[in-house]
Amino acid sequence: MQLSLVFFLALFSTSGAVSAQVEKSYQISTEDYPPYNYYNSKTKAIVGLATNKVRRAMEKSGVEYQIRLYPWLRAYNRALSAPRHCVYSTARTPDREALFHWIGPLVTVEWALFAKKGTPAASIQKLEEARQFVIGGLEGDASLSELKRQGFKTESVVTNWLNKDKLVGQRIQLWIDDPVYIDFEKQKGTEFFDYVKVVKIASVDLYLACNIKTPSAEIELLKKSVAASDSR
């Protein structure tokens, strides 16, 4: 009886330690968006410019973490689900501000409009001229959401590169995206098309966004870790 009681208490104590460890593990979601965050099939790892900063911050802070790749909306919604759930690379917008702790910025991207060469949309010179056309983008992405809020005609896809096919077939006439992303796809040999950047809309900082219920002390530690990696 005494031995059984000791065994039970030891098991209970061990289970509690495991639970605490799991509770403090960060679940980090991201999307396939090279060169900032993407899956490298050769190394079998999630890599990229933003990923490197996230990994350094987590390791410097000494917290356990996992990074998983999802379609953007799923990645974003996972970060809303529980404390210590985070998502990157995330644009910091007014409607998102109160939902997350913001760590970063990690990288800066450009929001720009692209058109297929030789089409009427290729001749526009300012954003207002785009109102006559349908603009494609990624479902849930801040850039497309902002254009939709301003009354532009928009269409969305759940996989970003599908916009290329829609633009080639003129199911959309403009595509909002980052030129660095498009150039990366071109450089790695992805099937491409003749396009032109017609309008730069903005330069935007992207962050690691962590669920608002994540302990503030841990967030401050992560912020310091990102800042330290930037200063090196």
Rank of each mutant, 00 (worst) to 15 (best):
V107I: 15
Y181E: 11
E97H: 08
L174R: 03
G189I: 10
V134Q: 07
A122M: 05
G137A: 09
L147C: 08
L99Q: 13
A82D: 02
T14W: 15
Y39S: 05
S231G: 01
Q173S: 10
S13E: 01
S4M: 07
K24V: 04
R149Y: 09
I172Q: 07
L11W: 12
G189L: 09
R74W: 02
G137P: 05
A10K: 01
P105L: 06
K117M: 04
F100V: 11
F12Y: 07
R171P: 03
V180H: 04
L11V: 15
E59R: 12
K60Q: 14
P120N: 06
D183C: 01
T93G: 03
L208D: 02
Y88K: 10
F114W: 05
A10T: 15
V134G: 03
L221G: 13
D165P: 01
A115T: 06
W102T: 10
H101I: 10
T93Q: 05
A227F: 00
V47S: 12
F114M: 03
Y70E: 09
F100T: 09
A17S: 07
T154Y: 06
A130V: 13
A142D: 05
V199P: 01
A82S: 12
K166M: 15
G104R: 07
P71N: 08
N77I: 02
G62V: 08
Q27N: 10
S229V: 14
S156T: 15
S25E: 14
T93M: 09
W72K: 10
L206K: 13
V107T: 14
S156N: 07
L147A: 07
E97M: 12
Y26D: 00
T119I: 00
L80D: 01
E129H: 10
E31F: 06
Q170K: 13
S19E: 12
P105Y: 02
V204R: 11
I28M: 06
I212C: 01
L174G: 04
P83Q: 02
L5M: 08
Y207G: 05
T43Q: 14
A10D: 00
L9S: 11
E23D: 10
A209I: 09
R78F: 11
T108G: 01
M1I: 00
L174M: 07
I176V: 15
M1E: 13
Q187N: 14
P71W: 02
G16R: 08
P179H: 06
R74S: 09
S29D: 00
L208V: 11
Q66E: 12
K42D: 14
L9W: 13
E191H: 07
Y181W: 11
T93C: 00
V18E: 07
V226E: 06
K60C: 06
Y39V: 03
K200Y: 00
E185S: 04
L221M: 13
K224N: 15
V47T: 14
K53D: 09
E129W: 13
E23K: 13
F100E: 02
W161R: 06
K200I: 12
A130L: 12
T159S: 08
Y26K: 04
L147V: 01
L147W: 11
